[in-house]
Computed example of a mutant assay.
Amino acid sequence: MPALPDAPTAVGSFAAIWSRALYPSARSGLTRDQLTLLLTPLAGQLRDALHQDRFDPRPARAIGWQLVRSHSDEPDALAQTLGVLDAYLLLYFPPPKEFSGPIARARSARLQHAVAAGFVEALRDG
Rank of each mutant, 00 (worst) to 15 (best):
A87L: 08
L67M: 14
R27Q: 12
S19Q: 05
L89T: 14
A3I: 03
V120N: 11
R27T: 10
S70G: 04
T81R: 03
P94F: 03
A122P: 02
L90K: 10
V68G: 06
A10S: 13
H71A: 12
G118E: 02
S28A: 10
A62F: 04
Q112S: 13
L42A: 04
A62D: 14
A62V: 03
H113G: 06
D86H: 11
A60W: 01
R32F: 05
A60V: 10
A79R: 14
F14P: 02
A62E: 13
A3T: 06
D33K: 12
Q66G: 05
D73K: 14
P41S: 01
R27N: 14
D48C: 02
E74V: 04
D33R: 14
H113P: 00
A77N: 14
L38E: 08
A62M: 04
P5I: 00
L38I: 11
G101T: 03
D48A: 14
R58Q: 11
R69C: 00
E74P: 00
F93D: 02
R69D: 04
H71I: 03
L78E: 10
P8E: 10
A77G: 08
L67Q: 04
L46V: 10
P41R: 00
P95A: 15
R47F: 05
A7T: 08
D73W: 08
A79P: 01
Q80G: 08
M1L: 08
G64N: 09
S72W: 07
A60C: 13
T9A: 13
Q66T: 15
L123P: 01
R105M: 07
L46W: 03
S100E: 09
I103H: 11
L4A: 09
L22M: 10
D86C: 08
V84H: 12
A26M: 12
I17M: 10
P24E: 02
G118F: 00
L22T: 04
Y23L: 04
R105Q: 15
A26E: 01
R47C: 07
A79S: 12
A104P: 02
K97I: 10
V68H: 07
G44V: 05
S25E: 03
E74I: 00
R105D: 09
K97N: 11
L39P: 00
A117Q: 13
A116F: 03
A117Y: 04
T40F: 01
F99N: 12
L39N: 00
R20E: 10
A21M: 05
G83D: 07
K97F: 15
G12T: 04
I63G: 03
R69K: 11
A79C: 01
R20M: 05
R58F: 10
D53A: 14
A60N: 07
G29Y: 05
T9H: 10
A60Q: 09
A104K: 02
L89M: 12
F99R: 11
R107M: 08
Q80V: 02
A117S: 11
E74M: 11
K97E: 10
P95G: 07
Q45I: 05
L90N: 12
Q112F: 00
D6G: 04
R27D: 07
L91W: 13
A7L: 12
V120E: 13
I17P: 01
Y88K: 13
I17E: 05
S108E: 12
P41G: 01
V115Y: 08
P95M: 01
E98F: 14
R110Y: 04
S25M: 01
A117M: 07
A117E: 13
